[in-house]
Write a protein that binds this DNA or RNA. Structure first.
Lengths: 203, 203
DNA sequence: CGATCCGTTGAGGTGCGTCAACGGGAGTGG
DNA sequence: CCACTCCCGTTGACGCACCTCAACGGATCG
């Protein structure tokens, strides 16, 4: 395994690859936060996902990436070359099952995001976003309550289908209602998780 | 293969399975149109996809369905039982690769849909929808220009993240601008595909 | 110390949702 | 064969959630 992998470090805001580039590499994030997004011709952006340590990037079966990837924080990643990986898959067919499981999981997440984008209000979107961040932090064994929120308002807005200003206003309102609070660094503390979770589901 | 399959016919509006049910079956549509959707507690609905002949349904790797499925027209489908399929997969590992390819393809479609839901206007959404319907009809060898649109305004709206009324108004406006025209049955003719495609991408 | 970027907040506008009324087609029963 | 009902689609009037435009303050950096 070791000889088909190479490491790489990205500074914040570096583009790892862009939509349409040949998808000859696969990455695994070991540290930091990244985002993947698509653009409309006039520049409107939809961020389709945020990626954290442990997540894979570029593992579709297509020949070109159909989205762009950019780092948000400093990021460390492992790079696998696709042809080598292909040989590995032929040697160990059980890995294919893992890949399929990962794709299935992503598909479920994508459907959640469609519900959010199509049918939730601004407040419900932000609440869902914070709950999701907190749960994902817990899943990878990081602190889930004062949760780290490394992305900017603009990135959060482009993920939730909102403007920067609306995103900021919702955060302010949640703070004012004592449901969340700012903490040193990029951390946000969830003061009333039940209320926040209820908001997220529109109840 | 033949002995693990059974056929089934659905009348319009029949529910095939609901969110949360154990996902022990997999289906392939041989005729008709279906939809898959998720609901929020208060009844808001997001339709996450429409399915046509040749499409598979319920092929995730999870143990329960995380969405509901309902027929739109009369539908014929083949049913596979999951445990049998599992045995088949172990005999023919190459099939896993096909499954992964399908999941990848769906993931790409889901990302397109996120761009649509998060960043497109009502008119861009409807234009994208019609182009998509037409292209998918062509892909399965059906007539792509007077294209069949079997779903109701309410279903289209819940797919595009719009209200019934807005959906209807956009259709009216496109008709009035001579970009589309109603045809007998559930067909819509695309009179100016270039303009419609340009609208879809927001240009 | 100016420049830049990000976040916040206010004021005002608008695209789309909501509410409502109406018409046509399909199914039903007298 | 004709009322009657129900459902769907359409259209108008109106309201509001969110977007746009704008100003400002704080942090970071050369």
């Amino acid at each position: 395994m070791a000889d088909i992998v190479s490491a790489r470090r990205l500074q914040p805001g570096e583009t790892l690859f862009v939509e349409g580039e040949p998808a000859d590499r696969l990455f695994n994030i070991t540290a930091g936060t990244m985002m993947v997004y698509r653009l409309l011709p006039d520049g409107r952006r939809q961020i389709t996902g945020f990626l954290f340590p442990g997540d894979f990037l570029g593992f579709g079966s297509e020949s070109v990436y159909h989205y762009s990837a950019e780092s948000i924080t400093v990021v460390d990643l492992c790079r696998f070359s696709r042809p080598e990986l292909q040989r590995l898959l032929e040697r160990f067919p059980a890995m294919e099952q893992r890949l399929f499981g990962m794709a299935s999981h992503e598909l479920a997440a994508a459907q959640d995001q469609m519900v959010l984008l199509g049918r939730k209000t601004a407040q419900e979107k932000v609440a869902s976003f914070l709950i999701m961040l907190s749960e994902r932090a817990a899943q990878r064994g990081q602190k889930s309550n004062p949760v780290s929120v490394p992305m900017s308002r603009s990135q959060i807005g482009d993920y939730l289908g909102l403007s920067i200003e609306t995103t900021s206003r919702v955060f302010s309102r949640l703070k004012q209602k004592k449901i969340i609070a700012r903490r040193p660094g990029d951390r946000i503390e969830i003061l009333d998780r039940d209320t926040l979770a209820a908001m997220a589901e529109g109840a």
